[in-house]
């Protein structure tokens, strides 16, 4: 393999960790999120896993990217990609006491 090609591949590999989006998981158990806050970067994906035996309905009204994952039962998981930076307040439509914040850095 020519040195210049090896150099290009090495550069690509070195740059890869900064270009791949990360995936995070937030569990819902006993009518609570597994964490109160989560710090991620724009482009990261967050999966909301329902570890309860009953349904949850995750949504956010944050202006940057409002979303509603709908109602889903125990053992299921739904994910959101946070494409924009900002502070996202996450709630459950069925359990109003469930709240958390996801801080998305640029």
């Amino acid at each position: 393999m020519k040195p210049i090609r090896m150099l290009a591949i090495a550069a690509l590999v070195a740059a890869t960790p900064w270009t791949l989006a990360a995936e995070h998981t937030v569990a819902q158990k006993d009518k609570a999120f597994s964490t109160k806050t989560l710090d991620i970067k724009a482009g990261d994906k967050v999966a909301f896993r329902n570890d309860d035996a009953f349904s949850h309905n995750i949504f956010s009204l944050t202006d940057a990217m409002p979303f509603d994952l709908g109602t889903y039962g125990g053992g299921q998981m739904k994910a959101v990609t946070f494409a924009k930076a900002g502070k996202f307040e996450i709630e459950c439509a069925i359990h109003p006491e469930m709240r958390m914040v996801i801080n998305v850095a640029p």
Binding site: F54, S55, N57, D68, G70, T71, A93, I94, H95
Partner: peptide
């Protein structure tokens, strides 16, 4: 709502 062919945004509250 979904179980009755209506708006799916209405959650089933029977288990809550």
């Amino acid at each position: 709502g979904e179980a009755l062919g209506r708006a799916p945004g209405m959650p089933p509250w029977g288990e809550e």
